[in-house]
Design a protein around this nucleic acid. Sequence first.
DNA 1: TGTACATCAGTGAACGCGCGTTCACTGATGTAC
DNA 2: TGTACATCAGTGAACGCGCGTTCACTGATGTAC
Lengths: 200, 200
Amino acid sequence: MSRIAEKRDAQREALIDAAERAIAETGLAALKARDLAAATGISLGGLYNLVGDLDEVVLRVATRTLARLDGVLADSGAGAGTPTERLVAMALAYCRFARDNLALWRALFEHRMASDSVLPDWQTQSQWSAFAHISAPLRDLLPGGDEQERVLLARTLFSAVHGVIALGLEEKVVAVPVEALEKQVGKLVRALCAGLTSGA
Amino acid sequence: MSRIAEKRDAQREALIDAAERAIAETGLAALKARDLAAATGISLGGLYNLVGDLDEVVLRVATRTLARLDGVLADSGAGAGTPTERLVAMALAYCRFARDNLALWRALFEHRMASDSVLPDWQTQSQWSAFAHISAPLRDLLPGGDEQERVLLARTLFSAVHGVIALGLEEKVVAVPVEALEKQVGKLVRALCAGLTSGA
DNA sequence: TGTACATCAGTGAACGCGCGTTCACTGATGTAC
DNA sequence: TGTACATCAGTGAACGCGCGTTCACTGATGTAC
């Protein structure tokens, strides 16, 4: 790799760094090419030498966010304990991740709405490792069930937890006590697991 | 009310009708003042004699949508049966409403992101009657619990169902079989109710 | 080492588009006499 | 009933702003001799 290519790569990284910081601070909607250029010391035109598109920047940031989330979920679900407690731990980890990375996390879901072209490949499942991480404890919880069934259930479980967190973190006006949210999430997962095992 | 005021009111209604149709067909993001004027036969400038703002139009449409949803939820939860089955019926009704009014339903949640001013009063709880409708069956299900606790639980239950439906209806590419979604929603609510009663 | 030339990353002014909102005007409707 | 005038809903061209993207240029860097 030539010196020039190295510099380009470094600049591109700096660009993504700046975009990540900008989204984290002011949200996806406030991400502007001019601001990004100013923040990195790159000229407006030069930005398009590093990146084809503003969308590409957003996509790269989203990929990073998903990678971090993946790590968090993998760690949180790795511990010992009952399947239920492992699922609870993962849900709480997701909750904390969402709170700590609020704008970046939201960006994952806002972006899809904008680009009406081919949706950016994540959310199609490939990048969403959440389901994969959920699968293991779920298999321990319901060893008898159909595998196909369990895949759907993993998605449902994730969606339910996601819904509670998304709506719980929504109101910006009043600062919702985070502990209350975590408590509800824990309650949800525990009740669900109890209901699933008793009913099956 | 003078003849002129009557005409104004009729035009305003026609305007909201057109906006509702437009959102239902092409989504909130595609709602343009010019299109709305053209669709109703009102001139672009005249539109602002009927309405202060495009936001006001959106808000009025959202209010209508919420009112319809309110009716659907009230009806679906009114039947006899166990508390669990009533909650299941309401969740399925919500699922069907979301599917049948996809864009209008999405508009309820997309709008909040846009207007950074005072949030439009719904979603603050007042207009969201969903929680109120859920409360009754929930009281029957858990007669012992704290009322304060139950309010939180109603919100959590709704959010969980909402999450499953929202993510389930998301992928536009592949047409997800609706029956599968309804099945998962039913499963979720049943498992939750079972878990809540056994655990308490 | 020095000189002339070529390349190309870097620049920012300008383009182009979309779109909500305004405003000077007009023509139909209503009123006074 | 007719005539002159006032009002005001209705009009659409124009304003204003935001913003992603392009492109003609320039100046630093590298190369050839």
